[in-house]
């Protein structure tokens, strides 16, 4: 059920990229500024489509929102050392892929508290590092890797160009073939009409 009502008991249906739907409480959803801007006042008929994100990611994001429903209003970043045991577990049990997906979703949904904690967590990884160490942490490609990547991209571009050229050729041929039946049809119709006219005039 979806409703514009603001009571915390109200549940909203969320649709993920897989097309699956699941319930999220209104109180949890209201932590998303994107939701507030798009649906809070106008309501939503049917599931709210957050279809750029998979179910696991959205569930993880809203798990955080459900948990922090009763926390005070967000008033700026909290130091990681001040995070609760629950918060720490929440972050620690995510692998890197899930963590990136959660940041992306949280960023899109504009959930300030979650985005801020995630980003502070990344910032902490860079603490006490020199430039070379930072390059490793943020997995920035080296000059050799960049060169290799560029070669791969050039090959891909060349391949794509070939495919495009072939497609253009095919399209050209198809165009000629497609025109043929129409001409034939016109000719057939004309012949029929001529025959009809001739038979009529013979009467």
């Amino acid at each position: 059920m979806t409703s514009p009502a603001s009571s915390s008991e109200v549940k909203y249906l969320i649709e993920s990229s897989e097309g699956n739907t699941f319930d999220v409480s209104g109180a949890a959803l209201r932590q998303s500024n994107t939701f507030n801007a798009m649906f809070l006042n106008i309501g939503a008929d049917g599931p709210i489509p957050f279809t750029d994100y998979n179910e696991a990611t959205l569930k993880k994001v809203f798990e955080y929102c459900e948990h922090s429903v009763n926390e005070e209003n967000y008033s700026g970043p909290k130091h990681q050392d001040d995070l609760s045991k629950w918060d720490l577990n929440f972050f620690n049990e995510m692998d890197q892929k899930m963590f990136i997906d959660v940041i992306n979703a949280s960023n899109f949904l504009d959930i300030e508290r979650l985005t801020s904690y995630c980003c502070e967590r990344i910032a902490r990884m860079l603490r006490g590092k020199n430039t070379q160490e930072m390059i490793k942490v943020i997995t920035l490609p080296t000059a050799e890797e960049l060169e290799a990547k560029q070669k791969v991209e050039e090959k891909k571009a060349a391949a794509a160009k070939k495919v495009a050229e072939k497609a253009a050729e095919t399209a050209e041929k198809t165009e000629t073939l497609e025109e043929l039946p129409v001409q034939q049809l016109v000719q057939t119709t004309r012949n029929k009409l001529t025959r009809k006219y001739l038979s009529f005039s013979n009467e």
């Binding site: 990136i100 992306n104 502070e120 990344i122 942490v137 943020i138 997995t139």
Partner: peptide, 23 residues
């Protein structure tokens, strides 16, 4: 082993948010 994070896979807004958390 030090934790790594592919920072530039994040949207720019999130990268800026990370930087705003740095001294």
């Amino acid at each position: 082993m030090e934790p790594t994070f592919p920072l530039f896979r994040l949207p720019e807004k999130a990268i800026v948010h990370v930087l705003q958390n740095m001294n």
